[in-house]
Simulated scan of single mutants.
Amino acid sequence: MATKLFYGPHEDQWGDLYLPDPGGAAPRGTVVVVHGGYWRDKYSAELGTAAAEDLVGHGFAVWNLEYRRAGSDGAPGAGGWPTTFEDVAAGIDHLATVAGPSGLDLHRVALLGHSAGGHLAVWAAGRHLLPPDAPGAGPAVLPAGVVSQAGVLDLAAAERLELGEHAARNLMGGASAERAEPFALADPARALPIGTPVHAVHSRTDDTVPFAMSADYVAAARAAGDPAELHEVGGDHFAVIEPDKEAYRTCRRLLERLLP
């Protein structure tokens, strides 16, 4: 059973904390689940529930994170730049507050993000390199690695391809030509190298986020010296978050590699 904890005053600043059986062994590590949905507020942390329940059953503590998202269907949202990024950073760092009472080891934390959540998870793994005044700078929790599930790992490409009906512009509050600095700070593809392992899991038949997003990111990351790996799986865009699919089980095995 999960415990809902708030990391800020807004109604969307919360996460569900799942802990393994308290009578058993200590958690093998903590997985922060960052859900997708093209950063729009019509999608919520419910997208991460199935993975969270599966992972806690395999001995992980899980922090299924909600955050303020950009608007949907023409209506304004509470998130977007920089709020969404500040929330993801604050939500991950909140583990430092709950670690002691919950028995969590802050040196054994991995991030798992799907689609737009993959973008946010990989961005968060590079927070230690952000300028001091940038949103999300100065992390209190440094992840051991990231598993990106069909992640939107190149924000400039997402804008160019008009993915999710201009989802990148919706997130950032405008086009990159007008908001060059925020786009640069928000784009994982512009942050290399980050020095953190990134496992990009993606299907060539994904018709929501192109396979090239992961393939190109991993190629650039490896060229920059990062320990990034590409893992090709089958299925559609959502197979990587469905515990009964082999694509998802690949993600779980990679988390077990990151948190052995």
Rank of each mutant, 00 (worst) to 15 (best):
A156R: 07
V233A: 10
F211M: 09
A26Q: 03
T196E: 12
A223D: 12
V109Q: 00
G29C: 01
D154C: 12
N170W: 04
A134M: 03
A124R: 03
P227A: 12
V218I: 09
A121V: 07
H10S: 11
A177K: 13
R68C: 09
G138R: 12
D54Y: 15
K4Y: 13
T84A: 06
T97S: 07
R190D: 12
G138I: 07
G145L: 06
G91I: 04
V31S: 02
L19N: 07
W123Q: 04
V33R: 00
A124D: 06
P182C: 07
S176T: 15
A189Q: 14
V31W: 00
D73I: 13
E86C: 14
D236A: 13
G113Y: 04
F85R: 03
V62P: 01
R160Y: 13
D41R: 09
R222M: 12
P210V: 14
A121L: 04
G235C: 10
A150C: 11
H35R: 11
E11H: 14
F238W: 10
A134I: 00
A99Y: 05
T3F: 10
S176K: 09
E66Q: 13
R169G: 09
V109P: 01
D41M: 10
G77D: 04
A239I: 03
L255P: 04
A215F: 10
R108N: 12
E181V: 15
E242D: 15
A150Q: 05
R28P: 02
V201F: 07
P132I: 06
H237E: 11
E242P: 02
A223I: 09
L171R: 06
A144P: 07
R68Y: 01
V209L: 10
C251G: 11
G174W: 02
F60S: 06
Y217C: 08
G195M: 04
G77Q: 09
E256Y: 02
G79R: 03
G77T: 13
W123R: 02
V141Q: 05
E246M: 11
P82N: 08
P135D: 07
G113R: 02
T205D: 14
G100D: 06
G138K: 05
S176N: 09
Y38L: 14
P135I: 09
A50N: 12
A50S: 15
A45Q: 14
Y67E: 01
A99D: 05
S214G: 12
H119D: 06
A175C: 11
